[in-house]
Every structure is written in C-alpha cells, then in structure tokens.
Design a protein around this nucleic acid. Structure first.
Length: 318
DNA sequence: GCGCAGGTATTGA
DNA sequence: TCAATACCTGCG
C-alpha cells in the first residue's frame, strides 16, 4: 500500500507531539498496533522519499483467515498522519508572513500526528504537563508494558495502550501495592503501580480520568462537538488545563483551530510578534487563534520546531 | 548533591 | 480575574 503524499515520516513521528509516543522502530519501519474495524492490526510504515509513504500490515496470528477491508486501513492511516491536509497551500500561507516564512525550511513534510486511540492521547497529554518529552515518553512506555493489551503477530508480540477500565483499578504506589499483596513480596520489589511509572503527582489525575471515561464521558462524542464545546468538556478532566486541553483537541482529535500555548510558544510568540514584551499565556492563545484561524494548530506545531531547530529557542530564553 | 524546568490545582487577594 | 505557590522527577 502506498500513499502519494508529501510527508517526512521521521520528523512527524519524532517531533514530540503529545497525542502518543513515537511508534516502535523495527527493520527500518515505524510499527504500531492500530485498531481497525474492531481488530488490532499491526501497521508498518516506511519511506524512501518525502513524497511517498509505504505501508504493510499484519493480522493477529489468531485472525489470519479473517478478511480485512483495505480501504478502512487506508482511511485510518490517512487520518492518523493527516495526509489530506494540503501542505503546499499551507506553505504559501506561511510565506505571506515574514515571521513564519523561515519555518518552512526547518519543518518540510512535518504533519500532525493524530492519536490512534483517544484514551491514550488523553493519558499522554496529562502526563506531558509540567514534564519533559523524554520523561513522559518513558512513563507511557512503562504503562504499556505493565497493563497494555498483548497481541501476537507474525512479527512478534505487540502491546497496545491499556483500556480505561484497566487503568482505573491499578495500584497507585508501592505502599498500596504492598498493602494489597505484601505478604508475598518486599516493599521495594513493588513494580506494578502507577507511581513506579514515573508519573509523580499525576497518579490520581490518571486514575480519575480513567474512571471518568469508564463511567461518565464518552470519548467518541468529543469529535462530534464544536471546538469550544469540546474544549469545555476536556477541561473537566483532572490534570487538564488550557494547554493540555488544546493538545488533546489538536493532536488527539484534529481540531486544527486549537493553538496550544505553553511557556515556549509564549516566548516565541512574544519575540516574533510583541517585541519581546511579556504576554500572558492566555493572551498568546487568544492571539494565535485569532490570527491564524484554522491554521492555528499547524502554525503552533511549525513554530515550535522551527524555534527548536533554528536555535531561536536558546536565543530567547530571557 | 543540588538547582532547575515545566502546566495544573489550590489558595488567597 | 489574577498572582503566588506546591506538586514529582530526571537531567545537567
């Protein structure tokens, strides 16, 4: 299967978008389990040039004889890598703004990398708050190892992200785990609890969010809402403030009018557009949404990577 | 060993 | 509505 779209797969995978961790690299391909028509399918993507994306897939060993709708796979992959977004049109938009114009050179082929699973996106986003990319990436990997759903494929065993029902009931920390099954182990041997994944004080946020998605909130309703309805809805979740809400909406659900604003976007925006004046994060968010409209999300993505790669970030650290 | 980075929740104007 | 502060962890 091949997609004739401009995309830099490596850049898109590794740009630290918060909806999910990068896919596993195996044999020169990025591999991940994606659920399509209620079946876990192992997707392997690779590319040789920036205008082609190649894809192979495997069915679970237990379902080798099941027939699968390839069109559904194609659609889902195009959604995840946002392949229908017109990059060239976006680049000509960037070129009209002298502040944004240089970003193109540093980010050619970078696309939104949307969540394969909304719940994973939400936990990833909560974990990413007040955290470094390296740290939250490790935490998510540990959560998958400990409670993920294993599926056997011809290429091996792969784990997908745990379900909300699983995560809502896990032990919070060593002490809780020890209390529950302490008789057969030492306190320092406790490893199957959320705190041991390095998520720190976000433990109750993650557990409570899992509970909400099990009992009260329907993840599939969110994409049907307008941006501002969806924004209010995800803000109800513990550990979700303005920045994380926008990340969930943009990287998780593809609301491209979101402009996730953190300390870096604030610094970049105030440097480029406000003469280095100190602007509140809330104002930067408003500014971005107002000025860039439906391109706000892409502009945010591009600004961040442009600033990082060009050395602008080091320069404006105040 | 210790300071620092980084959003959210909470508290108190 | 806004400012100040605590929260946890890993990195330099």
């Amino acid at each position: 299967m091949q997609f004739k779209s401009q995309i830099d797969l490596k850049l898109t995978q590794e740009s630290g978008q918060t909806s999910q961790t990068p896919w596993q690299v195996k044999d020169n391909s990025y591999c991940e389990v994606v659920e399509i028509a209620n079946m876990p399918i192992l997707i392997k993507t690779h590319q040789n040039d920036i205008n082609n994306l190649n894809l192979e897939y495997e069915l679970p060993i237990a379902n080798q004889n099941t027939s699968i709708d390839e069109v559904a796979i194609e659609k889902e992959i195009a959604r995840i890598f946002n392949l229908n977004f017109d990059l060239d049109k976006f680049y000509s938009y960037l070129s009209e703004d002298s502040k944004l114009e240089p970003a193109t050179d540093f980010c050619k082929g970078l696309r939104l990398f949307l969540a394969k699973d909304p719940f994973e996106c939400i936990v990833s986003s909560i974990t990413s708050a007040n955290n470094s990319i390296a740290r939250w990436t490790k935490s998510i990997a540990k959560i998958k190892e400990k409670w993920g759903v294993a599926t056997e494929f011809p290429s091996g065993t792969f784990y997908s992200f745990p379900l909300p029902t699983t995560l809502m009931d896990v032990y919070e920390d060593n002490f809780e785990e020890y209390e529950a099954i302490g008789r057969i182990m030492e306190l320092e041997c406790c490893t199957k609890n959320l705190k041991s994944c390095g998520v720190g004080y976000r433990v109750p946020y993650i557990k409570r969010a899992s509970e909400l998605f099990t009992l009260e909130i329907d993840l599939l309703e969110i994409p049907k809402m307008t941006y501002s309805e969806a924004y209010k809805e995800v803000l109800k979740l513990p550990g979700v403030g303005p920045k994380v809400a926008d990340c969930i909406l943009l990287y998780g659900y593809g609301f491209e009018e979101a402009f996730p604003s953190d300390i870096w976007i604030k610094r970049i925006a105030s440097h480029l557009y406000f003469n280095d004046r100190d602007i509140s994060v809330a104002k930067v968010r408003e500014f971005g949404m107002e000025r860039f409209g439906n391109y706000a999300g892409y502009v945010q993505l591009y600004l961040f990577h442009y600033a990082r790669k060009s050395g602008l970030m080091n320069k404006i650290k105040e």
